[in-house]
């Protein structure tokens, strides 16, 4: 039986993991061997974690004996393969469209407001309290209003993503610009740099670590909001599709979509971390972001 095989594999990996940890503590082996062991441990540990979840899930679905309540993981994987050959690509593209358009608006607005707020006291006094007031309200809270205003369709998820992604980028950009080392600005001034050069070649790069961290937070919260917004207020995309499958009691497909959501979110974050590591190579504190 396939599940027995999986359990056995998981058990073997766990045993290997423990063995390798014991070996690591012994100082009997060469540096190369230890390095290989470390890498092997970095690779095997996540596999062990996933295998553990897989095993627990399989056991729970056996115990419940109800594939609608909790479909076993292997049926979810089968469903994943089947939707991959079918509607999944279109759903992913629809969600990416919502994400791309929504974030373009949200990040542009958040960044522009932050730059204006740091340049102008009046703007800061106008904008800052509004941001602080709206920020604690979950994006989901606006779904009913958004549906009333735009009707069910792609505008609801786009609007909500734009809304939620404003806040992290705004707050981090303000903090990044406020935190620029005044000594660097003075250094640029005495070297003869005009204000525009200081803005683009001193303040912007100084604030970039914070801005990118804000972008990463915006992307994370946008992706989380996307699914809810599509599920309730959209007519396309992964969130909408997950809900659609539920209507047909195709819970294995529903979970397959959720799995895809998780994997894509993980990938996006990985891309941003790579970007951070690449752009912030100069910052010893930040260049470790990808590791």
């Amino acid at each position: 039986m396939i599940n027995d095989y999986h359990l056995l594999t998981a058990k073997l990996i766990i045993v290997y993991q423990i063995e390798s940890q014991v070996c690591l503590k012994r100082k009997c082996m060469s540096r190369e061997t230890r390095k290989i062991q470390r890498v092997a441990s970095a690779v095997t540990a996540p596999i062990v974690g996933c295998a553990g979840l897989y095993a627990a899930w399989t056991a729970a679905s056996w115990w419940l004996e109800n594939p609608i309540l909790l479909p076993p993981p292997n049926s979810v994987l089968t469903a994943l393969v089947s939707i991959m050959q079918d509607e999944l690509v279109g759903d992913i593209l629809a969600s990416l469209h919502h994400l791309g358009v929504g974030m373009s608006f949200g990040v542009t607005i958040g960044f522009a407001l932050a730059v204006l707020a740091t340049q102008n006291r009046l703007v800061e006094r106008l904008v800052d309290p509004l941001i602080e007031l709206l920020r604690p309200i979950s994006g989901i809270a606006w779904i009913p209003l958004a549906i009333m205003m735009f009707g069910v369709g792609e505008t609801v998820p786009i609007f909500l993503i734009a809304y939620v992604s404003v806040f992290p980028i705004y707050i981090n950009t303000v903090a990044g610009i406020a935190g620029v080392d005044g000594r660097l600005i003075n250094a640029a001034k005495v070297l003869g740099a005009p204000p525009s050069t200081i803005r683009w070649h001193v303040i912007l790069p100084s604030a970039l670590p914070m801005i990118l961290a804000g972008f990463r937070l915006s992307l994370g919260v946008a992706w989380m909001t996307l699914i809810g917004a599509e599920l309730i207020g959209g007519n396309s995309g992964l969130g909408w599709r997950a809900f659609w499958y539920e209507q047909f009691f195709a819970m294995n497909k529903n979970l397959a979509v959720i799995l895809v959501v998780g994997v894509l979110g993980f990938l996006f974050d990985g891309i941003i971390r790579l970007l951070q590591a690449r752009l912030l190579r100069w910052s010893p504190a930040q260049s470790g972001a990808a590791t």
């Binding site: 000594r183 005495v190 003869g192 100069w282 910052s283």
Partner: peptide, 30 residues
């Protein structure tokens, strides 16, 4: 400030994102 009066700071105040060469050429480029 004027580039005619050069300043050397105690804590260097180098631009951390620029290479040695880019730091040195900052003044003329700016």
């Amino acid at each position: 400030p004027s580039p005619d009066r050069g300043v050397l700071f105690q804590d260097y105040a180098l631009f951390p994102w620029l290479s040695v060469r880019q730091n040195i050429s900052f003044g003329p480029r700016a």
